[in-house]
Write a protein that binds this DNA or RNA. Structure first.
Length: 151
DNA sequence: GCCAACGTTGGC
DNA sequence: GCCAACGTTGGC
């Protein structure tokens, strides 16, 4: 079982959207590292922190779970989509996504500020300077520390 | 294969 | 809205 953190701008898609929809497909990722995680590493049942980026305040809003493992992102073939990629071929798709399922919304959002103040998270990717990756691995220890704070 | 120019992310 | 930090592109 692996642990992850996935960023979303709440103005575009928040944890409340996911709560309502129950399941969503994580389209629009156009970064190779993030794609590789979805293609190679994310397994059904893996736990995911749902992170609100570009938000006031930014922070972890709740928990989701991988529902369906990697498959081609349909938006790459959709000419009308802003995620359309003319270089990607149907027989060899460039972009892969996963489906994720709502698990829970935290009573209080764990703000980036708060996370920075917690000991044991010093090595967390999210808190590293210049780290922009929209899908990041989270260690079991980090997961447990954060989970505990949320409760 | 180098690297300058450009585009994007995301906190502030 | 600014801009640092990074990723990508494309000329050479």
């Amino acid at each position: 079982m692996n642990y992850w953190l996935m960023k979303s701008e709440p103005a575009v898609y928040s944890i409340d959207h996911l709560k309502k929809e129950k399941v969503t497909y994580w389209d629009g990722v156009r970064n190779y590292q993030a794609r590789n995680f979805m293609r190679d590493k994310m397994k059904k049942g893996d736990k995911v922190f749902f992170y609100h980026s570009n938000a006031e305040p930014p922070g972890i809003a709740g928990i989701a779970e991988v529902e369906k493992e990697g498959y081609p992102d349909p938006s790459q073939f959709d000419k009308k989509s802003k995620y359309f990629d003319p270089k990607s071929k149907k027989e060899n798709p460039t972009w892969i996504l996963v489906d994720i399922k709502y698990v829970k919304k935290f009573k209080d959002l764990l703000s980036l500020d708060l996370l920075r103040s917690v000991s044991g998270l010093d090595e967390m990717l999210l808190l590293k300077k210049g780290q922009r990756l929209s899908i990041q691995p989270v260690s079991k220890e980090e997961w447990n520390v954060i989970q505990k704070i949320a409760e």
